[in-house]
Design a protein around this nucleic acid. Sequence first.
DNA 1: TATGAATGAGAGTTCATTCAT
DNA 2: GATGAATGAACTCTCATTCAT
Lengths: 214, 214, 214, 214
Amino acid sequence: MTDPVNENGTVPISKKTTPDRPAPARRAELLATAAEVFAEQGYSATTVRRIADEAGMLAGSLYYHFDSKESMLDEILAGFLTELWSGYDAVLAAGLGPRETVEALVTESFREIDRHRAAVAVYQKESRHLVDHPRFAYLAESQEKFEDMWLGILRRGVAERVFRADLDIRLAYRFLRDTVWVAASWYRPDGAHGPEDIARQYLSMVLDGIAVRD
Amino acid sequence: MTDPVNENGTVPISKKTTPDRPAPARRAELLATAAEVFAEQGYSATTVRRIADEAGMLAGSLYYHFDSKESMLDEILAGFLTELWSGYDAVLAAGLGPRETVEALVTESFREIDRHRAAVAVYQKESRHLVDHPRFAYLAESQEKFEDMWLGILRRGVAERVFRADLDIRLAYRFLRDTVWVAASWYRPDGAHGPEDIARQYLSMVLDGIAVRD
Amino acid sequence: MTDPVNENGTVPISKKTTPDRPAPARRAELLATAAEVFAEQGYSATTVRRIADEAGMLAGSLYYHFDSKESMLDEILAGFLTELWSGYDAVLAAGLGPRETVEALVTESFREIDRHRAAVAVYQKESRHLVDHPRFAYLAESQEKFEDMWLGILRRGVAERVFRADLDIRLAYRFLRDTVWVAASWYRPDGAHGPEDIARQYLSMVLDGIAVRD
Amino acid sequence: MTDPVNENGTVPISKKTTPDRPAPARRAELLATAAEVFAEQGYSATTVRRIADEAGMLAGSLYYHFDSKESMLDEILAGFLTELWSGYDAVLAAGLGPRETVEALVTESFREIDRHRAAVAVYQKESRHLVDHPRFAYLAESQEKFEDMWLGILRRGVAERVFRADLDIRLAYRFLRDTVWVAASWYRPDGAHGPEDIARQYLSMVLDGIAVRD
DNA sequence: TATGAATGAGAGTTCATTCAT
DNA sequence: GATGAATGAACTCTCATTCAT
C-alpha cells in the first residue's frame, strides 16, 4: 500500500508540531492505517486506540507522530485532494473535448479510488459536516472548484451538442459527482477488473444509459 | 427469516419503557428530531444532549421515551425500511415490465427521500457499519432482498431486450442503487421540483444517458 | 402479612408531610413491599420504581404516600425498633434470672424475625452505615441501649455463676447479638418449625455448646 | 464444575485491559482501597469517584486498571475465596478429627478476617444478591462447597460422638457459618488480641456454650 | 520512539423527585 | 389516588490527550 500523503508542503493548513525529521515512512503507514479504520467505522466512531492497536502500538505513542486525531484526518483528506487535483489538472490541461474530458476525469477518479480507496471513502463520509470547520476550509474550496469544473464541462458539452440539451445541468452535475465517488464504498482493488475497466462501464452507463436504443 | 419490521412502523424494539398505546405522537416527533440530527452530524458524533436540546428537553428526559440512543437509531432505520418496502412491494405486485418497474421503483425511492429525507440520509451513512451488529440484522436482510430485486429486474430486462445486453449486471445494480440514494444527501423538499420531477430526470439520465444520440 | 408500623406517634423523628388521614392500610402494604425489596436487593440498589412495580403502581405515585425513599426506610426501621423494644421491655420488666432473660430475649427476637423478616433483614444490612446520618440517630440510641442491656445481663449472669466466668463479656455480647440477627437472612416463616422452635435450638447451642459434654 | 478461581489470587476475570505481568502492585493497592470503601458503604452506594478519591486519582483513571466497578468487586470476591479455600483445603487435607477440624477451620477463618477484613465484609454484605448474577456463579459454587464441607464435618462429629446427637445439623451449620463471618463487621486487626485469640474464645463459646456446666 | 499511567472533559444513562392533569 | 412526562443531579464509563521514563 503506497502513501496517501505526497511530498510535504503541498498539504494545506495542517500545522505540524512534530519534527519534520523522523521517518516519514512510519507516518505514512500510520496514516494508511488510520484511513482504513476511519473508512470502516467513521471518523467519530473510531478511537485513537483502535488505530494504535491496528498499528501495533499504544494509543499514546501515536502522539509522537501526530498532534491529534483531527490532524490525522486532516492529512488524509488533504493528501487525497492534493493528489486528486494533480490528476484532474493534468486532464484539464490536455484541452480535450467535453466528452473526452468527462471520460478522462471519471477514469482518473476511479484510479484514485483504486489507489487510495480508504481516503476516498473517508472523504465521502466526512467531508459534508467538515466544511464548516475552519481547519478544513480547503474542502469547501475544493468542492467549489469541483463544481465549477463539472458545470463548465457540462455546459460546454451541451453547447457543442455533445450532451443532451434537455438536461438539468445542476442535477446532471450531482449525478455525475455522486455516481463516481460512492463507488469507493464497495470497490475492492483485488477485483477482477481494474479501475479503467470499471470506469469504462460506468461511463457507458452514464453517457449512453442502460436502456437499449430504439 | 423474514424482515423483523412489522406493519405500520411500530418496530419490535427489545425493551419498551412505554406501552404501545399512549402518545405515539411525541415519540414520532422525537424520532424525527433525532433523525435530523443524526443525518446532519452522523450517529456517533451526535450527542443525546444535542437531540434533547433540539427537542426542547433535557437529555435524561429522552429516556422516558426511549431505551437508549441506539434504540432511537433502530426505530428510525426500521421505520424507514418498513415504509420503503411497503412502497416497493406495491410496485412489484403491479406486474409491470422491467423498464416500467425500474421507473416506478426509482420514483418510489425519491418519494421516500422526499417524505423522510433525514431517515434516508441516516440509512445511507450508517447502515454499512451496522450490518455486523446483531440488533441491526434486518439491515442485511433488507439489503439482500434489495439486491435480489434489482438483479432480477435487470436480468429480466436484458432477457426481454429492454436493457442493454452488454451490461455488467452487478455493476449496473450498484450504479442504480447508489445513484438514487445519495440524492438524499442534497435533496431539499422545499425545492422547485417535487420528487416525481427529479425521478423523471434521473431516470432519463440513467436509462438513456447524458450524451446525445448519434 | 401484618403492618410493621405501629400506632403512630411512637415512630421517632420521621417528619410527615403527607396527610395523616388517607388510608393507613395502603401505607402499610407499601411499606411491607418496600421492606421486602430493600431486604432482597439492599436499600441503595433498590429503585423506587421497582417498589412501585411490585406494588402495581408508577414510581411517581409513591410520592403521594411518602416523602421520599429515605422516609420509607425510616418508617420501616423505626417501626421495627419500636415493636422490638416493646417486646424487650416486657421481658426486662418481668424480672427473670439472667439465663431466663437471655432465653426470653432470644425467643422474642426470633418472633420479631418471624413477624417482620424483611424489616429485620433491612436493619441488619443497613443500620451500620446509617448511624452517622442525623435522621437515623435513633439507631445509635437503640444500639447503645441494646449493648447496655446485654452487657448488664451477661455481667449479672457471671456474677451469679450462671454464665462462665472466663468469658470475654464484650465478645460474648457480640456473639449473642450477631448470632441471633443474621438468622433473618435465611429464615423463612413457612418452615417446619416456628420461631420458638428455632429459638430453643439456638439457645441450646449458645448456652451449652455443640460439643458433647465429657 | 470446579471453582473458577485458580491458585494464588489471579482470578480468571473476563476481559483484562492490562496484561498479567506489569504492576500487579498498583492493582492490589487499588483493590484494597475499593474493598475498604465497599465494606464501609456497600457496593451499590459506593461511587467510583469515592474509590478514586481514596486512591488519590480521578475516577476515570481507575478504568486504566479495571474494566468496571463490577470487575473490581469480582476480583475482590474471587481473590478472597481463592485464598480462603487454599487455607481450608490445607486444613481438610490434614485429616484431623471433627472437633479439631472445626477448630482449625474457625481459626483459619479468623485469620482470613484478620488479613482481609474488608474483602470478607464485602463478601458478607453482597454475596447474597450476587449469586443470581452469571458473572458471580462461583459464589454459589463456593457456598455449596462450604455447606457440603460443614455438613460433612458435623455429621461425622455426631457419628463419632464428638458433637451432640440432638443437634439439627442444618441449623448448626448456619449457626457456625454466620457466627464466624459476621465478626468481620466489627473486627479491627489493631485490637489487643490477634485472630487466634478470638478464634479460641469463639470456639469455646460455640463448642462448650456460655452457660456454666452443671 | 514507545510505554505506562494518568488527566479531564464529556458522553450515555439512571433515578429520586415534582407536578399538572 | 394515580398517571405521564419531565427535571436535574449524579453516576459509570469513554476517550483524546499528556508526560515522565
